[in-house]
Design a protein around this nucleic acid. Structure first.
Length: 294
DNA sequence: AGCCAGGCTAAGA
DNA sequence: TCTTAGCATGGC
């Protein structure tokens, strides 16, 4: 058998694969002993790595068109320009210094929506387990016929139809718990045409956010995750327990009496035009250094 | 053993 | 309009 060729996507010093792929925006990438990352984009298995400043990729089956990867990693986006717009405070300075190269991905809307419905009140490691189980049970098998891939069988992310024609009971067998009914009902809303997530691209942030929260299992936080990680809406600032702790501790001196509404007002105004990016740096930093907020 | 996790929903104040 | 119990599950 053969080995797939490796393509260069050029030099990019603004790409930190480890930070990007472990920062809780995506749940299906795996790192091998050589430091390469393997993931699934649609029905294609891809393997990426950085050597020095150079970004390399292999695709299975072979594809010479790397447009998909460039789009997924948003390689045209200048991180240094973005980081410049962040407010200047000690926490953000530390986060961006330590994890510079952390990029927001542009992921598939349905996979992002479904994954984050499954994410609620779960640790990232466990979200990965649930998503993996759902893909194995309901996704389509993908063969990566290449000698250099140890695990040759992968699975696509199950379509809305696949989820909808499954059952909540089946989804619970994937350890989805109480999120099973949410995912199943949301899949039905999409299959039936009651909800069209391609339409969201043309809506304002506020309207898209409102539309998403009509879905079962999707509230303010998950809507923001979907808008940020799949639709590229930089205003979205997902506030989970970690971000909330960080805001209270570092921007309100740990004052307990700060209301939720004050925090909302703050996150919408303080972080500038790339607030979503700032949020991702904060999140990854405090989650990697839990003691600074606990 | 008890607590917590990239929350949401519905009931009650 | 705002708070809060309840909801599965696994890891520490």
């Amino acid at each position: 058998m053969s080995q797939a060729p490796t393509f260069s996507l050029g030099k990019n010093p603004e790409l930190n694969l480890d930070a990007t792929l472990t920062s809780g925006q995506t749940f299906r990438w795996h790192k091998d002993a050589a430091g390469r990352w393997t993931g699934i984009l649609g029905t294609q298995v891809v393997r990426v790595s950085c050597v020095g400043d150079e970004f390399f990729a292999q695709t299975f089956p072979l594809s010479r068109d790397l447009t998909l990867l460039r789009h997924y990693f948003q390689l045209h986006v200048s991180l240094s320009n973005i980081v410049q717009t962040f407010p200047d405070d000690p926490l953000l300075r530390k986060a961006q210094r330590k994890y510079f190269g952390l990029r927001l991905l542009r992921q598939d809307p349905w996979e992002t929506l479904a994954s984050f419905i499954l994410s609620s009140s779960k640790r990232i490691e466990h979200i990965r387990q649930i998503v993996a189980a759902i893909c194995e049970k309901l996704g389509e098998p993908i063969q990566a016929l290449d000698d250099s891939i140890p695990q040759r069988l992968f699975f696509s992310f199950p379509s809305p139809v696949a989820i909808a024609t499954s059952t909540p009971k089946h989804l619970r067998a994937c350890k989805a718990g109480f999120r099973a009914e949410y995912l199943w009902k949301t899949a039905h809303a999409i299959v039936s045409g009651r909800f069209d997530f391609t339409r969201l691209f043309r809506l304002s942030y506020a309207d898209a956010h409102r539309a998403l929260t009509t879905l079962p299992g999707v509230g303010d936080k998950i809507a923001d995750c979907v808008l940020l990680f799949a639709y590229g809406r930089q205003e979205a600032f997902p506030m989970d327990v970690w971000i909330e702790r960080a805001l209270r501790r570092f921007y309100f001196r740990g004052k307990r009496s700060v209301s939720r509404q004050e925090l909302n007002q703050f996150r919408r105004t303080h972080f500038g035009p790339w607030a979503g990016y700032a949020q991702q740096y904060l999140f990854h930093y405090v989650r990697s250094h839990p003691k600074v907020v606990k």
